[in-house]
Design a binder for these strands. Structure first.
Lengths: 351, 351
DNA sequence: TATAGATATGTTACCGTTATCATATTGAGC
DNA sequence: GCTCAATATGATAACGGTAACATATCTATA
């Protein structure tokens, strides 16, 4: 294996010191035009590529940030990634994405890897967990700038960006109640695990507000207690969950699903036994994925500004990275928006 | 900002040399049990974290690989990522994902970043392009191990993994022809751009084989010639494309869509004007995303072993990284499988 | 008890880059 | 021609870690 050329190799070939070559590479300091030309030519010839490790080691920053997401198969993650990247590349930073597959262990490994490789900062968009939070703390102890996106993490030196999932959950539930529903199910999380899921809390709170007793029988979660299921199998959860609900003596007349894919799975189950959406069961999703307007019936759902969250998280992070001293915690909670389509309100031609 | 502790700091505190601490950290060589304990304690106290830059610089490898994908919003990319990661973590490697958003420019930047940061190898799963390939060549010149996944890249020292998209395209088209369709449209790529899309070539080839003249009027691509649309907007392309086809004097009786989301968009357009799938128009997708069995009607599509492709790509890459000398090109093309559901064959209760 | 091997630690140098300071050279203005 | 600043380049020393070799102690066995 041929080794890659170094500054020293270039320098030797041109007849200058590595420092001069470094100046050419970084376009810093004074270099004579002729020298620059010669150096550039040789660099080309020798296929020079700078060594980011050495550079990072010396400069004590890598102009690199890490983004940790739990799962990558949904438009939510994709849009977050795009938003973050837009801001970062514009500022000359590179983003490395690590995927935890919703596993706390993998998440920890992602943290370690990114910290080891000395990213300048990190955006964490995985699901919150006790262990994950503990791990994050050790990073913060090492003064690594961190921004939490869409997950709780309360720390005086960590910024926080999220959509208002609680309010979104309220709005979705409120919408169903306004339509006259009283028996409203929830699919996607079990009662006991629901503490961290703001959408679910909004659902509970709104029911209570309207004097509707929360009925645990019509709240269904993942099968078999696995909390590890990758997000993109949520249509499965929606399908199974809805089948269960439809099998009850008194099925709910409306269901709020934790996200759009879960909602689509639920719709599939309803149609399969010949019932109609929304006439027999009304469905509300969450996220407003691009597909939601192209399903049958088109899905009533709660839009969240995903791309914007990514952008803001990136801006928070860069501000923190470039700050001379520790900044106080910044928070930003963006509003969601209920999008009413035909899975709750019978339209002109829902099939 | 407090600096993070270094080996030297630990060493000074314990009263040994950095080398001894290094031995403890790496669990290599001989260290007295007592010394090890002391070192470990101080490491804990000082919150030591090893510097991957320095380590990588000295050892000339980072145990890190880069995965470049074009878009992350579809289950395909997600499964590839999972497959790759499974194999890599088991072997102690870390994976960093870069997303190009289907942009050649961003792709080039991803290559640069990863190469700069001295990943030990790279898996490239973006769409092929002349410029992208040229860029890849410069990496190979620097002896960076590369595996191409699902994209053409012919190079004597680059491995190749893919599903048999061509055969899959043939099977899908064959299926429609067997059902009696002669007027079969394609949505997702324009004729002229189609050269690189094997699925499309399979479609063309199969039509020809059956003596069906290729009709450019019923082959529709992206709107406005943008080739930059992120993958997850493909339902939009399917919807718009189908609307266009339905507006023709003689619409096709069947459509092969470049992927499942495109197919779902097409179905949405058909239903919107009150036509039925498959009775009025039959639809075949590609990929077999989890959602495909939960749509109405459930989608006939071509399954590709995505996860497996990721695993194999990772194995190829590791083999190449750990080889003493340049290995010859390895290739692996995995079979696809036609999954017949109700979007082509009227089932018991398709709505 | 001499001696070889295992155990335990230290020394040195270098990975490739750049910050910092030092030294030449050039040119402009007087 | 002198002076000061701008221009151009070099020398040196890290950044944090580890490979390679050297040295010292301990232990078991002939």
């Amino acid at each position: 294996m041929r080794k890659t050329a170094t500054l020293a190799d270039i320098a030797a070939s041109v007849g200058v010191t590595p420092m001069t070559v470094s100046r050419v590479v970084n376009e810093s300091g004074y270099v004579h035009a002729d020298t620059r030309q010669k150096v550039l030519r040789v660099m080309q010839e020798m296929n020079y590529r700078r060594n980011g490790l050495a550079r990072g080691l010396k400069r004590q920053r890598t102009e690199t940030i890490g983004l940790v997401v739990g799962d990558v198969a949904n438009p939510f993650a994709a849009e977050v990634i795009r938003g973050v990247r837009e801001v970062l590349t514009a500022r000359g930073y590179t983003m490395f994405v690590c995927v935890s597959d919703q596993s706390v262990k993998e998440e920890a490994e992602a943290f370690e890897s990114l910290a080891d490789h000395r990213v300048d900062g990190m955006i964490v968009a995985t699901r919150a967990s006790r262990k994950g939070n503990a791990h994050l703390m050790t990073l913060l102890d090492a003064n690594l700038p961190v921004v939490a996106l869409g997950r709780d993490f309360n720390h005086p030196h960590t910024d926080f960006v999220s959509a208002d999932h609680f309010k979104g959950g309220c709005d979705a539930t409120e919408h169903l109640i306004e339509l006259g529903h009283r028996r409203i199910g929830f699919i996607g999380i079990k009662q006991s695990y629901g503490a961290g899921l703001k959408r679910f809390q909004g659902y509970l709170e709104t029911l209570r507000k309207h004097g509707i007793k929360v009925n645990e029988d019509i709240i269904v979660g993942r099968r078999k207690g696995t909390d590890q299921a990758p997000g993109y199998s949520t249509e499965e959860i929606g399908y199974e969950g809805m089948k269960y609900l439809l099998g009850l003596r008194k099925p709910p007349s409306a269901v709020f699903a934790r996200n759009d894919f879960t909602a689509l799975g639920a719709i599939s189950a309803i149609k399969q036994i010949g019932r109609r959406v929304p006439q027999d069961v009304a469905i509300v999703g969450f996220d407003d994925v691009p597909l939601a307007s192209h399903t049958s019936p088109p899905l009533t759902t709660v839009f969240q500004p995903t791309h914007e969250q990514g952008r803001i998280a990136a801006e928070f992070l860069l501000r923190r990275i470039e700050a001379v001293q520790n900044l106080p915690r910044a928070e930003r909670v963006l509003p969601c928006k209920l999008i009413i389509r035909e899975s709750t309100v019978s339209g002109t031609e829902s099939t």
